[in-house]
Amino acid sequence: MTAPLLSVRDVHVSFGGVRAADGVDVEVRQGEVLAIIGPNGSGKTTFINLCTGYVKPHAGSIHLEGRDITRNTPRQITKLGIARAFQIPQLFTEHRVIDNLMLAVAARQGFWQVLAPLDQPAHRQRATALLEMVGLQDQAESDVATLPEGIRKLTDIALALALEPRLLLLDEPTAGVSSGEKFPLMDRLMNVLRSQGVTAVFVEHDMDLVRRYADRVIVWNQGKVVADGPPDEVMNDPAVLRDVVGVI
């Protein structure tokens, strides 16, 4: 058994009367690709928000390689090696695609330079390589504000990859991406993750993607983990088929 990279223990979060996490225990193992599925509003995105410090649990704890990060800020958690891509892409709309990427590269390689330009060969080279990874090399000079949703989504993922994370959290990575582009994107993404040994968690509604790319699946429903195991086993579970897959 591989040691857990991330441990979420007995975590409780509720918003008003809605329980998004109700005593949840989740372990993310080193090097695995974990998919989280569940109906809308079941608490999947809250899990990502918890792990990245955007939402603080009312009870319970979150550990990254044994280090308690429960009360850490998003910035501190990012510094520890957890990066995320958002369900709705979070980009700098005043900048071009390449500038977005160079800012992320600078954040990783040395941000606090007062007089050195952002657009320097080392930053541009790495940013271009990241754009090639997600197939956006032709969009480098485009203004982010004018891009279609699918390309913004890929840019958002590239921003997260720029941080060279140990754990990458992806919230519906292919939402907004055209159906013909979904599998090529995920193929490229998985190649990058596997070649760099990055552990990944992705929230997804597309069961075909989950079957094909996840090593393990967690089923989240009404704030609880109701199933956990290999994709074939979990997604053939009659209760999961009835209560979750059938309603996604």
């Binding site: 910035r75 990066a83 995320r84 900048h95 160079m102 800012l103 954040a107 990783r108 330079q113 007062v114």
Partner: peptide, 26 residues
């Protein structure tokens, strides 16, 4: 030079998406 540096380029980014900057570790 300052405005063209990462710190200077981060200024308009603060206006457009402060949360993303924090999630880049800035």
């Amino acid at each position: 030079r300052y405005l063209k540096s990462p710190m200077g380029e981060a200024l308009p980014a603060v206006e457009t998406n402060e949360i993303r900057l924090e999630y880049l570790g800035i």
